[in-house]
Design a protein around this nucleic acid. Sequence first.
DNA 1: TATTGTTATACTCTATAACTATA
DNA 2: TATAGTTATAGAGTATAACAATA
Lengths: 169, 169
Amino acid sequence: MAPSPLAQKAERTSAAESQDLQIPDSFRDLVGYYLRIAQEASFQAISKGTSAEDLKPGWYTLLTIIAENPGLPPSDISRLVGRDRSTLTSTMKLLNARGLISRRRNRADQRSYGVRLTVEGEAMLEKLRRIARAHDARLDAIVGADKAHFIAILRRIAEELGDENGPST
Amino acid sequence: MAPSPLAQKAERTSAAESQDLQIPDSFRDLVGYYLRIAQEASFQAISKGTSAEDLKPGWYTLLTIIAENPGLPPSDISRLVGRDRSTLTSTMKLLNARGLISRRRNRADQRSYGVRLTVEGEAMLEKLRRIARAHDARLDAIVGADKAHFIAILRRIAEELGDENGPST
DNA sequence: TATTGTTATACTCTATAACTATA
DNA sequence: TATAGTTATAGAGTATAACAATA
């Protein structure tokens, strides 16, 4: 439950009249708070760009991972994205139904299968990549010169806080 | 669907052997990606600290807003947090049931009521504040010297991207 | 007619547990 | 026994639409 940024003031009745409804002072210096609203805004922006084409935002991550690790089984993918393997089943089914991925039974271990992008999958990934890049270009403009430094900080946050709560498990 | 950071490599079969399963290269320079994993790590960390005491992380935001705008009606609160007002009903009921807030009918407008913290609510907010501050102290240590600059960037992201997709509505 | 709080409903994302077929 | 993929189910968190009371 993160307050959205820019919650325009409501010129309502009651206390709203006397006080200028804004981001509470207590939040003004909290990194976590701004981390949240920034992420939320970014996610919204990219969702908007993709949903128009009937693409789920999460697919980008998945297709990218598959593209860079052809033949990876769902279990490994789930570990990579830090989600339980059960959460991947329906998405894989969907991606398969849309012809974006192929699932090939593993000869050595009949329990699992390897996932690969089809030609359509590559095309879709390319499309998503363009959207993501365009979005990130906007972020670049906003972030400014020290993008590398900015990302380094974000990475550190993820790594140092993430150590306790593992990726999923 | 954000990949968690630090997804430990899976030494599986198939492609996993040849490739070092890691964050895909394509993500390495995407601000949005790191924004996401950092936010996720931060949220997890604070969730962990609070859930132990049976406190929802989202309550902190709500209680803070109520504390800083005593007498505010739910409608205004929902606008502030950028969520639909219907999503607040159950939480308000819960907060009320736990004696953390009081709901007082508005004399002037019988449709609405003003929300205030009770003494217990203040105490709870204090507790949450301590947790949040401790968490943020860790973030401060990670972020380093230019915290102000870092937050400024996050704010800009929220504001400039947030302009298109309004807070809620 | 419009607004407030509420309810009913649904959708997304996620998790846990149990099932199956392998290993 | 243990693992891979699946299924069933549940729980947050959110949204939309509609309703009663009030404005």
